[in-house]
């Protein structure tokens, strides 16, 4: 039986005895786009950091593409990538230099061609020879996405990829993510505060609260379960503990 691209099993992360993630388990199949929702401090970024091997779980295991991320993460890392507004690309390097560096780190063949394709895809041709630090937020996001796709990852982790973007650029980014997923069959995990984004992109939503999985299902199923019209209302129900569940969680 083939293993799911991402499998988290009884993951726990304690900081000074306090649980940031408290015994969560889930698997994400290939060719899927899953949203990870939750308020500040719900444990989303901690979960993503453990999936990437940046953070050691207090207990439990994460397997990515069959590799145990604590013991053999380098087997998986060449097939993964990550975008977050909390990390940057070197600002003094031009966009092309950054893409060259990361392309070589991921041992991408025909790198110049790959950069050409990404420049076309993300409309960054005119930016290639500009220092990355001199780009606008929207331009930086497009470049970060191009970096994240340089190795055509089988697993893509996105931590609030459209934070601080104007609606037009955010919509443009979402369209590119949808396209990448449909073309590559990648497994994408998207942590976001933007309910519209999650509703539009994700076929499955995992809602976290206080380090635990509060709910898990398709957007339609969650709307039905909480008797709400939008995911934002569902999110507020969960966040405020005023659960309006109209059917038992299965």
């Amino acid at each position: 039986m083939t293993q799911p691209p991402i499998a988290a099993e009884r993951l726990v992360k304690l900081y000074q005895g306090r649980p940031a993630v408290d015994g969560i388990s889930f698997t994400l199949p290939a060719d899927s786009l899953t949203g990870l929702l939750g308020g500040n401090g719900a444990g989303k970024t901690t979960t993503i950091a453990m999936i990437m091997g940046l953070l050691t779980p207090t207990s439990g295991e994460v397997h990515v593409l069959g590799a145990d991320m604590q013991r053999e993460r380098f087997r998986a890392l060449k097939h993964m990538n990550f975008v977050s507004p909390y990390i940057d690309l070197p600002m003094r390097l031009t966009v092309r230099q950054n893409l060259m560096v990361f392309g070589r780190l991921y041992c991408v063949d025909d790198l110049a061609d790959r950069i050409g394709v990404l420049a076309q895809e993300f409309d960054i041709h005119d930016l290639l020879d500009r220092p990355t630090g001199r780009l606008s937020s929207g331009q930086k996001t497009r470049v970060s996405l191009a970096k994240a796709l340089i190795n055509q990852p089988k697993v893509l982790l996105l931590d609030e990829p459209t934070a601080s973007l104007d609606p037009d650029t955010a919509d443009w980014v979402r369209a590119r993510l949808e396209r990448y997923r449909s073309e590559s069959g990648a497994t994408i995990l998207l942590a976001s505060h933007n309910m519209n984004e999650v509703e539009r992109l994700c076929e499955r939503v995992i809602i976290m609260k206080k380090g635990q999985i509060e709910d898990d299902g398709t957007p339609a199923r969650l709307l039905q379960r909480y008797g709400r019209l939008t995911l934002e209302e569902v999110f507020l129900d969960v966040a405020r503990g005023s659960s309006g569940i109209r059917e038992p969680v299965l």
Binding site: M52, G53, L54, F74, L77, K78, M80, N81, F82, S84, Y86, I87, L89, F102, L105, Y106, C107, K147
Partner: peptide
Amino acid sequence: LANLLISP
């Protein structure tokens, strides 16, 4: 740094 640490 995080970009490097999640790379191969």
